[in-house]
């Protein structure tokens, strides 16, 4: 995932090529915007403004529409995520089984807000709704790896392991 938040002018032509590629994958498909945005986010970890503008030119969708969509859907990010992503499940089962305490623990240990990234860009904290492991509630994922039946005491270990991994 990309760490840089600004894109230099000589990267412009790369952007152009990249967007053209994504667009050509979805050419002729009505209503392809969200799928293209998914592809862009998969590549960068977020949707950089420059790429959105290029996309606007390339597919003839106004930047207004693109931002309407980007800011509506929680899945899309406008700023680069952290190096490591922690998602704590706040689905019903996890909530009832102690997810709020986990979130508080992560927040206080990393000094990060929900949906925010630590100052050193190491960690990003998200709160998600049901990751499909209710049987293991409360659950969280760290860089895609699922941890089940987590207790607040486990958090410091999980963070340390992630840092060293």
């Amino acid at each position: 995932m990309s760490q840089s938040s600004t894109i230099t002018p000589n990267e412009k032509s790369d952007i152009r090529k990249e967007v053209a590629q994504h667009v050509s994958n979805w050419k002729g498909e009505e209503g392809n915007l969200i799928m293209i945005l998914h592809a862009i986010q998969n590549q960068h970890g977020y949707v950089p403004r420059e790429v959105a503008m290029e996309l606007s030119r390339e597919v003839g969708v106004t930047l207004g529409r693109i931002y309407e969509v980007l800011t509506f859907y929680h899945y899309f990010k406008l700023v680069p995520p952290g190096k490591h992503n922690i998602s704590v499940c706040l689905g019903t089962a996890c909530y009832l089984k102690g997810a709020p305490a986990l979130i508080n623990e992560v927040k206080s240990q990393l000094k990060v807000e929900e949906g925010g990234t630590t100052e050193d860009h190491e960690f990003h904290l998200d709160v998600v709704r049901c990751i499909g492991c209710c049987g293991m509630a409360p659950a969280m994922t760290v860089d895609g790896r699922t941890c089940g039946k987590v207790k607040p005491e486990d958090i410091s270990k999980i963070i340390a392991e992630t840092k060293s991994a």
Binding site: G31, I34, M35, L37, H38, F72, Y73, H74, Y75, F76, R129
Partner: peptide, 8 residues
């Protein structure tokens, strides 16, 4: 297939 993007 079309994907959602995080909106109930």
């Amino acid at each position: 297939v079309r994907l959602g993007a995080g909106a109930f």
